[in-house]
Amino acid sequence: MIQFQYTRATAAKAALDAISRDKTAMFIAGGTNLVDLMKRGIVSPERLIDISRLPLTDITTEGKSLKIGSLALNSTVAENKTVQQKQPLLVQALNAGASAQIRNMATVGGNMLQRTRCHYFYDTALPCNKREPGSGCGALEGFNRMHAIFGFSEKCIAVHPSDMSVALVALDATVVVDGPKGQRRIPFIDFHRLPGDRPEIDTNLLPGELILGVEIPDNRFAKNVHYLKVRDRASYAFALVSVAAALQIEKKVIRDARLALGGVAHKPWRLSEAERALVGKPVSESTFREVAQLAMKGAKGFKYNEYKLKLTPNAIIQALKVASKLV
């Protein structure tokens, strides 16, 4: 940890001003990720701008969408009646994350921007291109049990650890941000990046930008959703693989579908092709098996995460079965 200045912003504008004046500054919201990173010497901001008191906590419905402020707490969102009614998939994903104590501190914006849990990223004594570009990827030939099977590069095989984001990408959410370029809207699917040559950059949020909130368009999935998180213990563990599944079913036929994976890529992994393949098909285990195979196209395992090549399709089938109430 380094010595740092601390200021608390009371308005979004003030927060944006403060960050534009200081290149070494960072926002802090719940602090559940950032403080850990600072203690381990992974990031060293010289100024913290506390945004946790900004009035960006509202959860409202506007037109045909649900708006959630970036500083709403994970637990508040999960307990909100409107969210439970309109977007139960999001609620399930939130409740699958971390622990009750952490969800009581963690914010929506902070959750999206949490860094990978890759062991090599977290240990300054080990190589990691994400933490220290050019130092090498420790995981590539190391202990990569938790790592990516999709979309990785030679430089980085880390995964994004957020559960909430898997639901948000499935639900066609949009991220609303403000900053040097003014207000802009980023489709959730474009919010996180693949590592490519620049694994140190997790998202397409620009320096100095503040997340104001997310918007989720209304949908007809509420009755048939499931967030399945496969993990090493019953609670309080990051996903080995997770699946966000949302179906619109009429007379046992799938009319519309959303499907995304967590724990398999550098970003929440939307399965658009598999979704299209579901549409028009009958609800049945064989439909789900076919789709799961399709979803795995292009997947590749490493020494310790080969199992994901089997676990992932299994999890997809299982999530679809639960969502469609086959079990």
Partner: peptide, 14 residues
């Protein structure tokens, strides 16, 4: 490489 309580698992209540 597993050297904190997020990576080194012990049973939780659940």
């Amino acid at each position: 490489v597993t050297k904190d309580l997020a990576d080194y698992h012990v049973p939780v209540h659940a």
